[in-house]
Amino acid sequence: MNYSYYPGCSLHSTGLEYGLSTRAVFKHLGLGLTELDGWNCCGASSAHVFDHNLALALPAQTLSLAQAFDRDLVIPCAACYNRLKGADMAMRNDAATRSQLESMLGFQYTGSVAVRPVLAVLAEDVGVKRIAEETRHPLNGLKVVTYYGCLLVRPPEIAQFDDPDNPQVMAELLRAVGAEVMPWSHATDCCGGSLSLSRSDVVQNLVGKLAERAREAGADTIATACPLCQVNLEMRQTAEPKVPAFYFTELLGLAFGLSDSEKWFSKHLIDPRPVLERVAV
């Protein structure tokens, strides 16, 4: 199976290990990822502040590139996924928006590209059975809470993925590789997102509560699927002991026994290796 790949800006910078581990896991599973040539920023949390059309046109431009291939478009970053999926939905469901974007960007929308998060591809196209079969080093004893943040699941009419209040897909994948997924009620709480620089106090408060609730749930670590959530979780925790945040793809790669995993973990602001050593996975 081959997919088009949109890493988004964060996976070339602060979310480097999310991109590396996603590629490694896909390669291990025999899935092809072809990065779209010439992709641009999705507009993230800022374009929609200024201009609705701009916020649709930026991701629509990338969709126009993806249309050249007969492949689903796979996106790891929650925000990128939301923006590209939102632009796709807008063009799919609203003829006026579609023709406006078509003439602005000089392309014809075909609707042939399915925009999908990495979590969906692994759960639906690969399946938990195969994920379990690939496990060489089960993560037995590692207690995790799953953390989706906002944009993978909200608003549900755009995200159309998992459950906006009580999502399950990440937990199923992590259970398949032997991790113990602890129940908690904060999987889709907000980390404070783009306020991280301008109002770090707000983000520290939100992230602090998430870390506290994760500890209360008995978790050693928080598994994330969003580069902004992950960097906020690691950069904005103030209370000790700090709870490390993994990308779920890193945990899958670790369980598959991929040798690159050490390289991903060395990129974390909160070193996750002591937690892994403690539970000896």
């Binding site: 910078s13 040539d37 010439g38 992709w39 641009n40 920023c41 046109a57 431009q61 990338t62």
Partner: peptide
């Protein structure tokens, strides 16, 4: 901390889409 982990590259990637992106900014006004 981010820099020493190689997570904030100093030079921006030059992408082929930047002309299209500038055009998007112009036309969306």
């Amino acid at each position: 901390g981010l820099f020493v982990r190689g997570k904030v590259p100093l030079l921006p990637a030059r992408i082929t889409a930047s002309a299209q992106v500038r055009q998007i900014f112009q036309r969306s006004k």
